[in-house]
Design a protein around this nucleic acid. Structure first.
Length: 610
DNA sequence: GTAGGGTTAG
């Protein structure tokens, strides 16, 4: 067992008082206390501890205080030593119990020990838990998702009357939210009312962000602002909510708020800036993301990961790989597993098969990182989409990780796009998907399979698939596009006529149609399953077209149209959007389910590979 | 001596 955490080759010997006879006892304790406060490493601490044991009476209350201090210092540097100190104290007080509890709750891998230690405290019964005890034990429970133990601790806190303590209540909110019981967290938060601190609000807001309830998070943030000035923690949650919503303008406001109102340590904080980088990437502004990243006073591996992942998301593979090289060259830390997810994803978005294989090998051989499902996911998708279906299939069947539905879907997706892929293979892949998803396959699988049958003119099979979908009650997820105009988010579904400005929108759509026809555009009808699109041009119109028309209606010079779509953009819409960008001289930035497309001057940043 | 902060494929 290694004791010292700060290596000290030659321990510095302290000038310890060597006597303590009777009358100067208090003076002796005071001297030891002074030494303790000045002590800088474990070796000195141990000398003082040994001396305390040798020269002081264990029953003296001043000695107990000294031991508390020793325990406090050692718990920060060496928990095992702290436990030994604790064991030597005959009657530890609640401070001492709490100190060790805190040390366990704060160290990863010791959370369970924290709970056991708390139980021991209750069992021994010499001292009672106090208002400091509960935040520690609840924190440990939160980290372990130990809901039942947490509830018991909650019960104890109620019994002892500490549940009205703000720290205890905040810890309870955190516990319940961490365990996925948002209703219980809300209940504690609700009951606090007048006692709420800024932390109560922050925990609640962040909990909503974590479960993807971004709108609720922002709503609660609005309420909070009536009572508290947001701090760095608040702003980070708000920035994350903007990232989730793709709300660029609100995100920019949050960024501005951090710069204007928060103090400089917050504005230069690694976590805040990393979140900003992520937010700008996810909101479609790679330029602002890069700007924040470049100006960061300090970056850690997660900051780099956000930047690499963001570049990948925007299809900027070369820049992402350059960013990776830069990380390796300039930083003292190594890339981690997630860095490689970013790098592989970048290769995937550009169909860079050779580089993908190279980085996968590099990860395993040079960095000794064990590939996870995500890495295999990228590689399988990369290989399959680039046409190496057999190699992809081989990888799926031989890799040491169990493939999930998504990996099988990548294969099926690739099969559907390649005419030479055999129907038998597609059927086998589809069977695997249905097997691995235990009957909860998404509608996409059926759609893909029916597309495969359709392209082989196997109409009976297309019919069976439809029947199967109807029998299993599977419906297609409706396509939906969002567009933010002047900070307000507008939502459109396919063929949507519900918008108050629908008439104008459809007039713009007519203009688009005329202009497209004038340049000889003919619609691509590859989606046979989508019957509505055959009926008339207007009715089945994909949601992104309507959103683009609305964007054109609200166009401001030099400001790109930004669209968010829940599904992947189809071939025809991709083609049309490229033409619109040219015919209307407008930049269109579209985030679909998988990535960003930047349309400008008739071309898309994805180079038609997506 | 007490509570709240980050990443990932498609």
């Amino acid at each position: 067992m290694v004791l010292a955490t700060t290596p000290t080759p030659r321990p510095h010997h302290l000038p310890l008082p060597n006597t303590n006879n009777g009358d100067s006892r208090t003076h002796h304790h005071a001297h030891l206390l002074r030494l303790l406060n000045e002590c800088t490493d474990m070796s000195q601490l141990k000398q003082i501890h040994a001396h305390t044991l040798r020269t002081t009476s264990p029953t003296n209350p001043h000695t107990l205080f000294l031991h508390s201090r020793i325990l406090h210092f050692s718990s920060l540097a060496d928990i095992n030593y702290a436990f030994r100190v604790f064991d030597q104290v005959e009657k530890p007080n609640s401070f001492m119990w709490n100190t060790l509890l805190r040390a366990c709750a704060r160290s990863s891998e010791r959370e369970e020990q924290a709970i056991l230690f708390y139980c021991k405290m209750l069992e021994e019964g010499d001292v009672f838990p106090d208002e400091y005890t509960f935040p520690f034990v609840l924190r440990a429970c939160a980290y372990l998702f130990a809901l039942s133990e947490g509830k018991q601790a909650h019960g104890n806190a109620v019994k002892l009357g500490f549940d009205s303590d703000v720290y205890v209540s905040n810890s309870l909110i955190h516990l319940y939210a961490s365990c996925g019981c948002l209703e219980l967290a809300e209940k504690v938060f609700e009951e606090m009312r007048e006692r709420r601190s800024i932390v109560s609000w922050n925990v609640m807001i962040d909990s909503y962000v974590r479960v993807g309830e971004f709108e609720t998070a922002l709503k609660v943030f609005g309420e909070m602002q009536k009572v508290f000035e947001p701090d760095g923690y608040t702003m980070q949650s708000v920035i994350n909510a903007c990232a989730g919503l793709g709300a660029l303008y609100l995100g920019m406001w949050a960024h501005g708020y951090v710069l204007r109102k928060c103090d400089s340590t917050v504005a230069s904080d690694v976590l805040i800036n990393s979140s900003l980088v992520d937010m700008y990437c996810k909101c479609g502004s790679l330029k602002l993301a890069q700007q924040v990243f470049d100006r960061m006073p300090k970056r850690d591996v997660t900051s780099w990961n956000y930047m690499i992942l963001g570049l990948a998301l925007h299809g900027q593979a070369e820049a992402a790989l350059k960013c990776f090289d830069c990380l390796v060259e300039t930083e003292s830390f190594a890339p981690n597993s997630i860095t490689f997810v970013g790098v592989l994803s970048a290769c995937n978005h550009r169909g860079m098969v050779e580089e993908g294989r190279k980085f996968f090998d590099m990860m395993v051989k040079d960095y000794r990182i064990e590939p996870r499902l995500e890495h295999y996911g990228c590689l399988v998708d990369l290989l399959a989409r680039a046409g190496f279906i057999d190699e992809a299939l081989n990888l799926v069947t031989t890799m040491p990780v169990k493939p999930d539905t998504v990996i099988w879907r990548s294969l099926l997706d690739a099969c559907s796009k390649q005419h030479e892929a055999s129907i038998e293979l597609s059927e086998e892949v589809a069977r695997q998907i249905l097997k691995s998803s235990e009957g909860h396959a998404s509608s996409g699988v059926y759609v893909l399979l029916s597309r495969i049958y359709a392209s082989a003119s196997r109409w009976n099979d297309v019919g069976s698939i439809r029947k199967l979908m109807a029998e299993d009650g599977i419906t297609k997820e409706p396509g939906c596009s969002l567009i933010e105009i002047d900070g307000i988010i507008h939502e459109f579904f396919a063929g949507d006529t519900s918008h108050p400005r629908s008439r104008e929108i459809f007039r713009v759509l007519d203009t688009i149609k005329e202009k497209l026809e004038a340049v000889g555009y003919a619609p691509e009808c590859s989606h046979l399953i989508d019957e509505k699109r055959w009926q008339s041009v207007g009715v089945g119109l994909h949601s992104e077209r309507i959103a683009i028309a609305f964007g054109l209606l609200n166009l401001k010079p030099g400001v790109p149209i930004r669209i968010f779509k829940n599904l992947r953009i189809c071939n025809d819409c991709h083609k049309v959007t490229k033409l619109i960008s040219e015919l209307f001289d407008v930049e269109i930035i579209m985030r679909d389910r998988a990535r960003f497309h930047h349309f400008k001057d008739g071309v898309c940043s994805c180079t038609d590979y997506w």
